[in-house]
């Protein structure tokens, strides 16, 4: 980290002041919309349009949130999102971990070609397969079912790439051979030797997968048809769509409660988030 702290001479106090000013303004802009979401969720319905803007929380949160609960199946949607995200995260970790392990530590014919193929799929836009996948799901009878969302996302190219890079650098080949001499099966070696070493990489991938799944919008919108199956993102959009003059107190109370878990998780694990993000960029 200290490696980078050399650009420029140490500037004057005024220079430092301006640098901090830029950073603080940037930080305020980053935080304000989320904070304001919270403020509006605690205010009466017309408060979103007061000038100057409200920036102090009030006491209307429970009333607003209750109004939202009357209109949408909030907790059902949260649970749906949670179920989908957890299933997807668990399978991604298992399948990407195994595939990354194979690409990192096994010798087999066509290894380089197959790995290159995995990487190439990263550049295919998702929308290209939207319509056939929809048709496929309707043939399978998976419309309005979580299977249609979870199954195609059980493993992904980025995850395989990420796990391979980590396993190559973190797991020594001798350790695996020692396990093999002791008579461990291939899966036992993965489970008992490799997994404990690669926990940080699994954590990063897990957080990312969970976040993407939780925030996904287009595919669930296409697949899920009934309110009781909606994910939270679809439900929030429905709340906004109903035209009775927007009650932003109500909208923001639901949106804030739906956003909060992710932000809490992010602040708890922000180091893993950010290290995962940057090394992903550095290596590609």
């Amino acid at each position: 980290m200290s490696a980078g702290r050399v650009v420029g001479e140490s500037p004057s106090k005024i220079g430092a002041f301006f640098l901090y000013l830029i950073l603080i303004v940037g930080a305020l802009i980053s935080v304000f919309p989320v904070y304001w979401m919270f403020v509006i969720s605690t205010q009466t319905r017309e408060a979103a349009f007061r000038i100057p803007p409200e920036i102090i929380p009030s006491d209307q949160f429970l009333i607003n949130f209750n109004n939202a609960l009357k209109q949408i199946m909030f907790f059902e949607s949260m649970l749906n999102s949670l179920v989908i995200a957890v299933l997807q995260t668990v399978t991604v970790l298992l399948f990407c971990g195994l595939a990354g392990f194979a690409f990192a530590k096994y010798e087999f014919p066509l290894r380089r070609f197959l790995f290159f193929f995995v990487l190439a799929t990263l550049f295919v836009p998702q929308q290209l397969s939207l319509i056939p996948n929809y048709i496929l799901m309707s043939k399978l009878g998976w419309i309005n079912s979580f299977k249609a969302i979870v199954v195609p996302g059980m493993v992904n190219a980025f995850g395989i790439f990420w796990m391979r890079q980590y396993i190559m650098s973190a797991v020594s080949t001798e350790l695996i051979e020692a396990g093999r001499i002791d008579g461990c099966s291939h899966f036992r070696i993965f489970w008992n030797i490799v997994v404990p070493i690669i926990t940080p990489a699994l954590a990063t991938l897990g957080i990312f997968t969970f976040m993407n799944s939780w925030n996904d919008f287009m595919w669930p919108l296409v697949i899920l048809k009934s309110q009781d199956k909606f994910t939270i993102q679809i439900t929030l959009q429905q709340l906004f769509n109903i035209r009775e003059g927007y009650d932003y107190g109500k909208i923001m109370s639901a949106t804030f409660v739906a956003t909060l878990p992710l932000i809490v998780v992010f602040f708890m694990f922000s180091r893993w988030f950010i290290s995962g993000l940057t090394s992903g960029a550095v290596k590609s």
Partner: peptide, 16 residues
């Protein structure tokens, strides 16, 4: 702090 907006869902961002 700078990374926090990326965690917020696009739907939430759009509503705010």
């Amino acid at each position: 702090l700078y990374f926090m907006p990326t965690v917020t869902s696009i739907v939430a961002v759009t509503l705010v």
